[in-house]
């Protein structure tokens, strides 16, 4: 089942630049695998910044779990490159 969110999360990336773990609702999730990665420009035209610098949003669709014993789920994380803000977008479990 897929649920949509939009909550900010804290994400730690590894040396290779891929997310290694993230914290959500006071739990820490370890990323096992990156399934998909894609990019989309934000709606820069809605913003008041005259020059849309670094308009990309990064999407990471990862398989992660909250630790041993917890089931793995699919989590879609989004990173606003310019603002350096991570958001959790979808959860499928």
């Amino acid at each position: 089942m897929a649920r949509l969110y939009g909550e900010p999360v804290e994400v730690q990336t590894g040396e290779d630049g891929l997310p290694a773990w993230f914290g959500w609702r006071r739990r820490r999730y370890a990323v096992h695998a990156v399934q998909e990665y894609w990019l989309v420009n934000r709606d820069w035209w809605r913003e008041s910044n005259p020059v849309p610098a670094r308009p990309e949003l990064e999407y990471w669709r990862v398989e992660a779990s909250a630790g041993k014993g917890h089931p793995a789920g699919i989590y879609e994380l989004r990173r606003d490159v310019a603002a350096e803000v991570w958001t959790l977008r979808r959860v499928e479990d």
Partner: peptide
């Protein structure tokens, strides 16, 4: 890519954000 996005909007005669436009990501 933002300039290219604007050109897409102009070519299709729709505003930015219209579902008729393809997504851009600078690649």
């Amino acid at each position: 890519s933002p300039a290219a996005q604007v050109l897409d909007a102009a070519r299709n005669l729709v505003p930015l954000g219209s579902p008729r436009l393809v997504a851009h990501n600078g690649r």
